[in-house]
Every structure is written in C-alpha cells, then in structure tokens.
Amino acid sequence: MTQIYRIYINDTALIVSDFMPGGIGSYQQIDAQQFDFRDFYQQVKGSIPSVYVLLSQDPKKLFRKIRKPFNVIKAAGGVVKNEENQYLFIYRKGKWDLPKGKLDEDEKTKKAAVREVEEECGIKVLEAEDKLCRTWHVYEEKGEVVFKKTTWYTMKAENQPLTPQLEEGITEARWFAPSDFEYIKRNTYPLICDVISLIEV
C-alpha cells in the first residue's frame, strides 16, 4: 500500500512518500538521510512556491520523526454542500479558503468542525458526514515552529444567507458550483486545492 504525506509551508509543499507521485510538476528531491526539518523550514518559509520530495521505504515512520520535535495544533474544518450542489467557501486574507479553526480544550474533532463552519459563515449545518482527509500546515506561533493538523469533514446545509465572521478576518462567504472551482484554485492555497480535489462532484 502506497503512502504519501504532504506538509505545507505557505505555498511550498514537502511530500514524504514511498513512490514518486505524478502530476506535481517540477520538484526537487531531497536526501532523506541528511534531512533536518528545522533547517529546511528556515530555507523555504519565505521562498517562492516549490515542491520538494522525500522518498522513503517507510514514509509513516519518517513523517513521525519529522514532526516529533514540534508541537501539534489540532484543527477541524468542513466541506459543506447544499441541496443545489453548491459548496461553501470563505474569503480571508486575500484568498479563498474553507471554514476551519482550532479545537477547544477537550472538544471532539467533528464537533469542532461543525462549530467553526457555523461561526465563520453564520449558518446552520444539517449534517456532518464522513471524514474527508487530514492536512498538515507548518508555521510559526509565538516564535515557535508548529505543525497544524486539520481534519476535514463533508457536511450538508441548506442554501441559506451567509454571514462572514468579520472578527476572524473573513470578508465574504459564498456558495460556489463545482464549475467555479477553477476560479477558486487561481486564488487559494495549495493545501485547499488538495482538499478540493477530493470532492466528488
């Protein structure tokens, strides 16, 4: 069984895998034996978007080794579809995004996903369904490098008025048809493109 992990630092992707994935465009392969993630992060955090690949016979073990020295922040979000087969997106910090946020203390992941969607978009979720995927995003918080693990769930909601949560920097919430996804992809994060690619339309 093939294994692949994607770690995003801004728009740069680090792929840890036991095979060379296709469709990733130009990339740079890194020697896993000499790899130090902290040094790698400092090198790429302000660079132009790039793709790096670490090949390993045991990607799961290597991925755990990479993230073990760092704090992991747990978050959850939703891919929300209405009865008209439209999907919910938010506009924050100049890019299209999906609603998500950090878990409260002792909060269950799916419950947090629903709460964040409802808070950020001012809607009522009818149903939270299956887990869609997990994504990993690395950034700095209070001067420390942290890994954010976001668990994404598919959800259903009625087509209803949307109220963006302005205090979270969300200036717009909007329903989009799958035919609009290419428009979204032109101004979003590679991580969000990964999530969108899993939507069955």
Rank of each mutant, 00 (worst) to 15 (best):
K156V: 08
V138A: 08
Q165K: 13
N187V: 14
F63R: 04
L103N: 07
K60E: 12
G77I: 00
K60C: 12
T171D: 10
G94S: 15
E168N: 14
P99K: 00
Y139Q: 08
Q160L: 05
I196E: 02
I184M: 06
T150V: 11
L62D: 11
L103H: 06
A113L: 03
K61E: 15
E141A: 08
T188Y: 04
L88T: 04
A76H: 03
V117F: 03
P69H: 12
F181W: 02
I90W: 03
K149V: 08
W96P: 06
A128H: 00
Y189R: 15
I170S: 00
G78R: 02
E84V: 11
D180T: 03
E129Y: 04
G78D: 05
N85T: 12
E119P: 03
K156N: 12
A173G: 04
A177F: 11
V145G: 00
K148W: 09
E84P: 05
Y87F: 15
W96V: 08
K142P: 06
R67D: 08
K61I: 12
G78Y: 01
V72A: 12
P69D: 13
K111N: 14
K100T: 10
K156M: 10
W175R: 08
E129R: 12
A76D: 06
K65C: 08
K102H: 12
D97S: 15
E118Q: 11
W152M: 07
R174H: 12
V117Y: 01
K61Y: 13
G78C: 09
C121F: 00
D97T: 08
I184V: 13
E144K: 14
K124P: 03
P161I: 02
I199K: 04
I192L: 07
A75K: 09
R92Y: 06
V79I: 12
L103R: 04
L62S: 08
K74R: 14
R115E: 06
F176P: 05
K74Q: 13
E200D: 13
Y139N: 10
V79T: 04
L88Y: 02
V79F: 05
A112I: 00
E141S: 10
N187M: 15
L162P: 02
T188H: 03
Y139E: 09
A112M: 00
K111S: 15
K95Q: 15
K61V: 14
T109D: 09
D130R: 11
K124L: 09
K108H: 10
I73W: 12
L162I: 06
W96N: 06
I90G: 01
V145R: 00
Y87M: 05
V146M: 07
G94Y: 11
V145Y: 01
K74N: 11
E182A: 08
N71F: 09
N71Q: 13
G94N: 13
E84W: 12
K108R: 11
L162A: 07
E118M: 05
T151W: 01
A112C: 05
V145E: 01
F181I: 04
E140C: 03
S179L: 13
L126I: 10
